[in-house]
Amino acid sequence: MRSDGLLIRIASMIPVFFLVSIFIFLLYESIPSIFYNGWNFFTSYRWNPGITYQEPVPGPFGFRASPGASFGALLFLFGTAATSALALAIVVPVTLITTIALAMHTPRPMSRAVGASMQLFAAIPSVVYGLWGIVFLEPLLLKYVFPWTEATLGFIPWFRGPATSGSGLVASSLVLALMVLPITSAIVLDSFRSLQSRFQAPILSLGATRTEAGIAILGFARRQVVGAVFLGLGRALGETMAVLMTCGGAINVMPVDIYSPINTMAAALAALLDSAFIDASGMTLSALAELGLFLMIISLASSAAGRALAGRIVLRGEAW
């Protein structure tokens, strides 16, 4: 390789170096917390930096933390899982039915326009969704939706209420669903269209209705559909601001019903990094690094699975 190639190779390896260093750095920072908290990190929901104005005391394996410190992230893990699951429970059926309707029941120019407009969802910043969630969605939920769910589904303990705030699982998941939808629908619609020209006419000529043909073609594209769901999940797991603003910021109290405040890993990181400054032992920072490391691992795993199934990631704004 000549010298110009060598210089370019050096420059192009800098992002690789950054990526590796993010992983190594977070791992290095997490080590005290990994040893101090052990499995407690995943099984306890008590997040307590301890008495930070007292001298740090040695804990398990000799790592020092403030007296009484304990860092359990179960509440945040649960919140991330619950918001992402509920968001996907909305996104998946909506994606499938709109794909069939747009590709099979709508004239091509109109469906293109609708598909492109849906991609605009991806361009709206996370904080703007958060603002909309706070001033529009939460009052709407509290005033109209939650009284109705309490009345009709109240026989199930999770729905009994009474709801005192619009923020929490439902608001966060709805906002997340709007943010994930452009990704999944772009991938699914795209792979549907790439198969449509080949299979539509033969299937219809067998006497299938348009919907049945759509379902069959989605069946041929199931790899991409599953991949799209994983890619959407990867995005939902890591979403920060919109969830931070609508989740209610729960800490040390596990949610008891769908109206309770919750918290997610990403939102907790944003909310709690402040508290690392007052903990001179550094254990809070280490525990937050462990939280960040775990968040990174699960969202990268989900995205990698999606990429393996659906092809390369569709980045925000790239789909139209």
Binding site: V16, L26, G238, T240, L269, A289, S303
Partner: peptide, 28 residues
């Protein structure tokens, strides 16, 4: 091989949550 390493790096960086970048930037 280098091409797929670079592509994988780009794809992986696109999938890292914003707050993880925030935490890394803060620490480093």
């Amino acid at each position: 091989r280098v091409g797929s390493l670079l592509r994988a790096t780009v794809d992986t960086m696109a999938a890292i949550p914003a707050m993880v970048y925030g935490l890394f930037g803060f620490l480093v």
